[in-house]
Design a protein around this nucleic acid. Structure first.
Lengths: 218, 218
DNA sequence: ACTAATTTTTAGATAAGTCTAAATTTACAT
DNA sequence: ATGTAAATTTAGACTTATCTAAAAATTAGT
């Protein structure tokens, strides 16, 4: 049996290692989980023992296929619950993360597959992140950050990188959401800010914002 | 902060003590939670310390108002989730208990109140048990067990005492459910079995069944 | 290549919740 | 009233996940 703590370690390692593709070092795991490096060392030894990951002393860890399977399933549950909270229970996109952190650990195949069906098999969560299906398959669209957009092009906003409440509320207050159509007017080399236009509004956003807003070409 | 384990102890004590009205002894708690009496002693000391219950050595425990509040809130969450699972996710009434045992511990005021509204403020769960509102108030109907019914009277089935999968599946297979209208034809003094009639069907049910089926007068 | 700084691991300690086995208290039968 | 059975508590130990402090290994700068 896998514990809640183990699931949280696996999830963190999955995200830190670019969806289980890269090695992850001890300190970054400690930081992500707000714990100490020594605790991480203990836990990764246990997770290696259980074959959720491969661990090389002083080198870091990388998830096994088994570990990735666990991680993808948690991501699926997290994102489906987020859709449920926003679409059925009137949560805003900046409120869902915390509750979903708990709901994602409920273990019931039937629960999650029925929830998936109830929500009509959504492919993306409220932040634009893809939701794996029951076989772990993602439908990924090509998306770029606003910071990597081209001047003069028109894009649709399809996701965010930063899902913090602060950032999402900033977007809300400026009437930017998923689906918003944005034209890139100017990029300021001095501070990497970007001037954009949407719904007749023109505004300048900082580099920080530009790096955290994902677009696809229209 | 209250832990998941503490919540489970409080819930068990609430049910064992007739909704927090009676003293509960150590062994019955141990049995209910599938643990040892010595573990219970340790835990009730801690719960007494935190003022969720009053504990008298060798005498047993009884919940405080604070403890009852915790218990009622867990019951509310458990039963609302059960309604959700049956009404929205195609669970049967014998499948919901296990999953609800986990969902009941998710802590979010907004989640549970929005769920309540989404389900249109149900007053009873799929087994006929009353669901407290956000202030902890129950809407309780007078109900009697089939074993205490009167011959010749007609009743509506409004609940079950035993919520085990075995019993519920037995009722399903005999087409008895909440809302079924039942006439009591005969009570056999020898073995306390009861002969009933519903939807043109006549059948004899054992004392065990009769004690676990709740009715209200039509 | 060698020292210095950083990262990681080890060792030993702590807290929560549990267990077994022994001791204590209460309840009951005669 | 007294001895025995049943219930309960205490004492000491174990496990999981964590921590601090010290030791060891790796990486970087010159």
């Amino acid at each position: 049996m896998i514990t809640l703590t183990e699931e949280n370690y696996i999830k963190a390692i999955y995200h830190l290692g670019k969806y289980g593709r890269e090695m992850v070092n001890t300190n970054s795991i400690a930081e992500a989980l707000d714990t100490k490096a020594s605790s991480v060392t203990d836990m990764v030894k246990k997770l290696a023992e259980k074959e959720y990951l491969n661990y090389k002393k002083y080198q870091g860890v990388i998830l096994t296929e088994k570990g990735k399977g666990i991680a993808v399933n948690i991501v699926r549950k997290h994102r489906l619950w987020e859709v449920f909270l926003v679409e059925k229970l009137n949560f805003t996109w900046d409120e869902v993360h915390e509750v979903a952190e708990h709901l994602e650990h409920i273990r019931s195949e039937k629960l999650i597959n029925e929830l998936d069906a109830f929500l009509e098999f959504p492919s993306y969560d409220p932040h634009g992140d893809p939701i794996p299906d029951k076989n772990g398959k993602f439908i990924n669209i090509d998306k770029i950050a606003l910071s990597h957009s081209e001047i003069g092009n028109v894009y649709t906003c399809v996701g965010v990188k930063d899902t913090s409440s602060h950032f999402l509320k900033y977007l809300d207050s400026n009437k930017i959401g998923l689906g918003t159509v944005i034209e890139v007017l100017h990029k300021e080399p001095f501070d990497n800010s970007v001037k954009i236009k949407f719904n007749t509004t023109e505004m300048v956003v900082s580099q920080n914002v530009a790096k955290n807003l994902f677009l696809k070409t229209v």
